[in-house]
């Protein structure tokens, strides 16, 4: 059940460009599932009142630690980056519904863009734990905005059982400074032609996720997508985070998502 938990910053370091990584000690780490998120109260300035919703890249239930990778884009994330080891605050979580395993047996394709990567890495861990094989496409604007240690984690996760096929981790940049020149969607066709994937998982900018969903649909592959919304509460109390569905109804991103079946979303 979603609740309020204390957390203590263990490390909070600059990674590259505007991207930071925080590890913290918090009991929520023992309950949270890949794709779920936490809503963080950043101390220091009472004039910005809302919490900051963040996905996580790794949770260690035993040591009760959570790893958050985030871009500094404004007031709240900037204050978050100023938190020092030993500082404490609270987070609301676990929030929402996370990724689920593929309904069919077979290989999965992960497609991440920008800071959509952290929850996709958590998804990869879930798949590796369950013996599901996967390949990944990770895009960013430019070469030095890639989060190298998360790319390494994707490469180094245990291989699936009973298969010696090597995992592909394809890197793209919008400006061509590293890997494939283009968007992650440009790299999808090649991989999908070679492999009969049973499931696509995606998180990143809205335009990217819409494109990924379209390609998956064309090839008749199930697709899960983790959406972002401005949030008031993060636990279904304010109806501020509506997501329009193809049925014409609104779902709540923080409660019914953030992970949705891409088929249900009105892109």
């Amino acid at each position: 059940m979603t609740s309020e938990h204390p957390f203590e910053v263990l490390t909070n370091a600059h990674v590259t460009k505007d991207i930071w990584c925080m590890t913290c000690h918090t009991p929520v780490a023992a309950q949270i599932e890949p794709g779920q998120f936490v809503n963080i109260a950043v101390p220091g300035d009472a004039s910005h009142i809302l919490r900051i919703p963040l996905s996580f890249s790794a949770a260690d239930a035993q040591r009760q630690t959570l790893e958050l990778v985030y871009a500094v884009v404004g007031e709240g994330t900037s204050r978050l980056s100023a938190m020092r080891p030993g500082e404490v605050s609270t987070m609301v979580g676990p929030c929402g519904r996370g990724w689920w395993l593929p309904k069919k047996s077979g290989r999965a394709l992960l497609v991440a863009g920008g800071v959509g990567l952290p929850p996709v890495v958590a998804c990869a861990r879930m798949l590796a734990r369950s013996g599901v094989g996967f390949d990944a496409i990770v895009g960013s604007q430019t070469s030095d905005r890639h989060v190298e240690f998360l790319l390494d984690e994707l490469r180094n996760m245990p291989p699936e059982q009973g298969c010696d096929c090597a995992r592909k981790v394809v890197v793209t940049t919008d400006d061509g400074t590293r890997g494939i020149h283009g968007f992650p969607t440009d790299a999808m066709a090649g991989l999908m032609a070679d492999h009969p994937y049973v499931q696509v998982y995606t998180c990143g900018p809205l335009g990217l996720m819409g494109g990924v969903a379209r390609i998956a649909r064309k090839r008749n592959v199930a697709c899960q997508t983790s959406l972002e919304r401005m949030m008031g509460c993060g636990f279904g109390a304010c109806s501020c985070c509506n997501v329009e569905l193809v049925s014409g109804e609104y779902a709540l991103c923080c409660k019914d998502g953030p992970v949705f079946d891409a088929e249900e979303v009105a892109w």
């Binding site: 009472a46 004039s47 910005h48 009142i49 809302l50 007031e75 709240g76 919304r229 401005m230 949030m231 008031g232 304010c238 109806s239 501020c240 985070c241 509506n242 997501v243 329009e244 014409g248 109804e249 609104y250």
Partner: peptide, 16 residues
């Protein structure tokens, strides 16, 4: 049905 997105904004100054 309610209104489309976005439904909420942080204003700073302790208001939304």
């Amino acid at each position: 049905k309610g209104n489309p997105v976005p439904r909420i904004a942080e204003l700073g100054g302790s208001a939304i």
